[in-house]
Simulated scan of single mutants.
Amino acid sequence: MEGSTIVLTDDAGKTLPCTVETTFKVESTEYLLLQPVDFSVQIFAWQETDDEEETELADVTEEEIDVIFATAQAVLSEQNLTLRRSAYTLTVEGDLPEPTEEDIIEIDTEEDGNCSEFQELAHFYYEEQAFSVFTALDPLMFIAKVGTGGLPEILTPEEMNALEPYVEKYLDHVLSTEDAEEDS
């Protein structure tokens, strides 16, 4: 199954083609580590801070994405990228430009202060509001379980929390095995 492509479908019927990176079992349940075929992207708005000289990124709601989607799609199409409203994430299809230092920004993506590096793909304005489209330099991964009828199901937050220790142990094992192979 590793290397094959499967399609996730959300409650709204949107789809997300993914490559199966690996499979593993915990107790009697089979799990899949999935990476979207296309590049996952996020759109952020630029806001002024209390210090009017600086700006910061702010999350964009689903309703705002509905309004700005066509503009973002048009700006990305100038780079031969196709923006899609896929299941669980926005994606772009096409060849991403090579990242330069000016394109890379660190964004605090979690409550505990963890930062991830993102590449800015496009910057645009909609009704005088500035927006940017970013893709993470580390690919987005999903964990799904094989559900009824053999169809993949994204884990609930509760299931993900319960599975986290197993995933960490599994990934530690895989990484240490890869390191040992490289040293040989």
Rank of each mutant, 00 (worst) to 15 (best):
G3F: 06
D10Y: 13
D10L: 13
G13C: 04
K14H: 12
T15H: 07
P17Y: 01
C18Y: 07
T19G: 08
E21C: 13
T22V: 14
K25R: 15
V26S: 08
T29G: 06
L33E: 03
L34I: 03
L34F: 00
L34N: 00
P36C: 06
F39E: 13
S40W: 03
A45H: 07
E52K: 09
E52G: 05
E53S: 08
E54Q: 03
V60A: 02
V60P: 00
V60M: 01
T61G: 02
E63Q: 15
E63G: 13
E64D: 14
E64A: 14
D66W: 12
V67F: 15
A70R: 12
Q79N: 06
N80L: 12
T82E: 04
L83W: 03
R85G: 01
S86W: 13
Y88K: 11
T89R: 14
V92Y: 10
G94M: 13
D95I: 13
D95C: 09
D95K: 06
L96A: 10
P97W: 06
E102R: 00
I107N: 04
D108P: 06
E111W: 10
E111N: 13
G113K: 06
C115D: 11
E117S: 05
F118V: 03
E120A: 10
E120M: 12
L121M: 04
L121H: 04
A130G: 11
A136H: 06
L137Q: 11
L140A: 07
I143C: 00
A144I: 12
K145C: 04
G147T: 01
T148G: 14
T148K: 12
G149C: 05
L151V: 08
E153D: 11
E153R: 15
I154M: 15
E158Q: 15
M160D: 06
M160Y: 15
N161M: 14
N161C: 09
L163E: 08
E164M: 12
P165W: 00
V167A: 07
K169P: 00
L175K: 04
E178G: 09
D179W: 03
A180R: 11
A180P: 05
S184A: 13
S184P: 07
